[in-house]
Amino acid sequence: MHLNFNFLGRFTQDLLQGAWLTLVISFFALILSFALGLCVALMRSSKSRVLQAMGRIWVEFLRNTPFLVQLYFFYFGLPELGIKTDPVVTSIIALGINGSAPNCEVIRAGLLAVKTGYYESAYALGYSSFQTFRYIVLPISLRIAFKPLTSNCINLVLTSSVAFSITVNDLMGVSKTIAAQTAKPFEVYIFIMLAYCVFTFIISFVSKAIDRKISIRL
C-alpha cells in the first residue's frame, strides 16, 4: 500500500479550524472540570455526611456511565426540558462535568496528603480555617496533584474527539468529513492520530516544565 498525505494540503484550512475548535473545547472544558472537581473534592472532604454522600454519588455516577451517553443526554435529552445549547457549548459542559470526577479524586488525594502539622502551624500563627485552606493547604495540595491532573487533562483532550458525534466540527469531525470526501480513511486517520499526539506531547512537555518549577517535597 502506497501512503500519500499530499491530498490533505487541500484541506489545510478545514484541519486548522478543526484543531482550533478542539483546543477551544478542551480549554474551556478543562477549566470547568477543574472548578467542579475542586468543589466536589471539598464536598467529599467536608465533615458533613450529606455533602460527602452527594460528592460520592456525583463521582461514582460519572465514572460508571459512558461519556457518549452523557453527551447524548445533554444534547438530545435536555432539550425535552427546554434546555437547549449549541453543540460546542454542550460538548464543553459535558466534557467539563465528565472530567470533574477524575479531577475530584486527584485533588482529594492531594488534600489528604497535606500533613496535620501544616494545618496546626497555620492555626498557631493565627490563620482561620478558611485562610489555612486558601494560603497553605490548597497551594500545597494542588502542587501534589499537578502531575495526575495533567494526565486527566490529556485524557480530556483525547475524549473531546467524541464531540463530533453531536455535529461538532472539531479535528475529529473535520477528519471524518475529509475521509468521506476523499475515500482515504487510512491516511486521514493516521494523520489525525498524529495531530492528537502532537497536542498531548505539547501538553506533556509544558506540564513537565511547570512541574519542575512548582513541585514540592513534603
Binding site: K115, Y118, E120, S121, I136, I140, I216, R217
Partner: peptide
C-alpha cells in the same frame, strides 16, 4: 513552635 518543623513547603 513544634517538635516537627513544618515550614510551608510551597
Amino acid at each position: 513552635v513544634f517538635q516537627q518543623t513544618t515550614l510551608f513547603p510551597h
